[in-house]
Amino acid sequence: MYDFNFHSASSVDDAASKLAAAKDGTVMAGGQTLIPVLKQRLASPSDVVSLAGAGLSGITNNGDSVTIGATTTHAAVAASGDVPAALRSVAEGIGDAQVRNRGTIGGSIANNDPAADYPAALLGLGATVTTNQRDIAADDFFIGLFETALNDGEIVKSVTFPNATKAAYAKFPNPASRYAMVGVFVAQAADGVRVAVTGATDCAHRGPRLEAALSANWSASALDGITIPPENLNSDIHGSAEYRANLVIVMAKRAVEAAG
């Protein structure tokens, strides 16, 4: 790891001004992605600004929606009675206990790993990301491989999830890393049926054909005849594109069954 200047931000504004003053600065939340990246020298920022003391942690449920602060850990979300069960199960299934004790929702979505879990939950529930500059709908947030709609220096403050009538997440974890080989989030959301798939392509995305089938008939069997073309799906030593294509349908069915 190359050396850098470390700063602790006391607020979002403080973090933004420390970033602006740095030659090539980056924010850090739980460090569960950033530190491994720095160790591999895949990034070499001049300055690292910690958000841990910026007051961005916490969960509020106002009856219609739940808002999760950017530096809220996966463990805190998994343990919160204010968080709907489907979202709790997403947090509970991330990595391992020690990663969940430090990793945060803001870091997970800003990083936008192709196999990350939270992006599927944001898309599946039609969440809104609030930054220090604006509100961004989940549908517009996840752009591509490790790419989001965030501008340089833009900081995620919180994520707001509207209530859904029914929702569940089913994930087939990679046995070694616990990241999703494929994960599917399904919901009867305020604006209709939503299906979001992670792990299968360069970043989480919605599945319009699965949504249409489940809108017509909310049951696992509604997905029976659907096949996902393997072109453009991820393929690696853990699973071929064809394998992942099949897994999308299998996980979608499990999610619908779990949602009831």
Binding site: F6, G31, Q32, I35, P36, V48, A75, D96, A97, Q98, V99, N101, R102, A176, S177
Partner: peptide, 21 residues
């Protein structure tokens, strides 16, 4: 950050001390 040989308690919670500054 995968093996856990470095786990310590920080303010009562177990954490990987190799993945923390």
């Amino acid at each position: 950050s995968q093996c856990g040989a470095c786990v310590v308690h920080v303010n009562g919670d177990s954490m990987k001390s190799c993945t923390m500054l």
